[in-house]
Amino acid sequence: KDKDLLKGLDQEQANEVIAVLQMHNIEANKIDSGKLGYSITVAEPDFTAAVYWIK
């Protein structure tokens, strides 16, 4: 199951987060929520590491 990592990002921010996570071998998903911006989700086992790397 995926957990929400970040919400309300613009496309550039979302792409930067995806890139950082991929560099650390964390699979992440970018979801277009329309006017609400983009959300990033990661698998539950990767959540703690993902939070660490996006600081």
Results as ranks from 00 to 15, higher is better:
Gln11Asn: 13
Asn29Met: 11
Gln13Ile: 06
Ala50Lys: 01
Ser33Asp: 14
Leu36Gln: 11
Thr48Gln: 13
Glu44Phe: 09
Met23Ile: 08
Pro45Gly: 14
Trp53Asn: 00
Gly34Phe: 05
Lys55Trp: 13
Ala14Phe: 03
Ile18His: 03
Lys7Ile: 13
Ala50Phe: 04
Ile31Asn: 06
Val51Asn: 08
Thr48Trp: 15
Asp2Thr: 14
Lys3Ala: 07
Lys3Tyr: 09
Asn15Ile: 07
Lys35Met: 10
Phe47Asp: 00
Gln11His: 11
Glu44His: 06
Lys55Arg: 10
Lys1Thr: 09
Met23Asp: 05
Ile18Val: 07
Ala49Tyr: 07
Met23Asn: 07
Asn29Pro: 01
Tyr52Ala: 06
Val20Met: 15
Gly8Ile: 03
Gln13Cys: 14
Asp46Ile: 05
Ala19Lys: 13
Met23Glu: 08
Ala49Pro: 03
Gln13Tyr: 10
Leu6His: 02
Val42Asn: 01
Ala43Tyr: 06
Gln22Glu: 07
Asp46Thr: 04
Tyr52Phe: 11
Asp10Ser: 15
Lys35Leu: 12
Leu36Trp: 13
Asp4Glu: 15
Asn29Gln: 12
Lys35Tyr: 11
Asp10Trp: 04
Gly34His: 04
Phe47Tyr: 12
Leu5Thr: 01
Gln13Arg: 11
Val20Gln: 07
Ala19His: 09
Thr41Lys: 07
Lys3Phe: 09
Asn15Ala: 09
Asn15Thr: 06
Val17Cys: 09
Lys30Gly: 04
Asp32Ile: 06
Leu6Phe: 10
Val42Arg: 00
Gln11Phe: 14
Val51Pro: 00
Lys1Phe: 10
Gln13Ser: 09
Ala19Ile: 08
Thr41Ser: 08
Ala43Leu: 07
Lys55Ile: 13
Asp46Gly: 03
Trp53Lys: 00
Glu44Ser: 08
Gln13Glu: 10
Asp10Tyr: 05
Ala28Glu: 00
Asn29Tyr: 11
Glu16Gln: 14
Asn15Leu: 09
Ile26Val: 04
Leu5Pro: 02
Gly8Thr: 03
Ala28Gln: 01
Leu9Phe: 03
Ala43Pro: 08
Ala28Gly: 06
His24Gly: 03
His24Arg: 05
Glu12Gly: 08
Val17Arg: 01
Ala43Trp: 06
Ser39Gln: 06
Tyr52Pro: 00
Gly8Ala: 05
Pro45Ser: 15
Asn29Ala: 09
Tyr38Leu: 04
Leu9Trp: 02
Lys55Val: 12
Ala28Tyr: 10
Gln13Leu: 07
Ala49Thr: 08
Ala49Arg: 12
Asp46Glu: 05
Val42Thr: 02
Lys35Glu: 12
Asp32Arg: 09
Ser33Thr: 11
Thr41Pro: 00
Asn15Val: 06
Gln22Tyr: 11
Glu44Asn: 05
Ala50Tyr: 04
Leu36Asn: 13
Ile31Pro: 02
Asn29Leu: 11
Tyr38Lys: 00
Asn25Leu: 06
Asn15Pro: 01
Leu5Gln: 02
Asp4Asn: 12
Lys1Arg: 12
Glu27Leu: 13
Gly37Pro: 01
Ala43Phe: 06
Lys55Asp: 09
Ser39Ile: 13
Glu44Arg: 06
Ser39Met: 11
Asp46Arg: 03
Ala14Glu: 02
Ala19Pro: 01
Met23Ala: 12
Ala14Gly: 02
Thr48Glu: 14
Val42Trp: 04
Ile31Val: 11
Trp53Ala: 08
Lys3Glu: 05
Ala28Ile: 04
Lys30Phe: 08
Tyr38Gln: 00
Gln22Leu: 14
Val42Lys: 00
Glu44Cys: 08
Gln22Gly: 07
Ala49Val: 06
Lys3Thr: 08
Gly8Gln: 04
His24Asn: 05
Lys55Tyr: 12
Ser33Lys: 15
Ile54Gln: 02
Asp32Asn: 11
Ala14Ile: 04
Ala43Cys: 07
Asp2Lys: 11
Thr41Gln: 09
Ala28Ser: 06
Glu12Leu: 10
Lys1Gln: 11
Thr41Gly: 03
Ile31Asp: 03
Leu6Val: 10
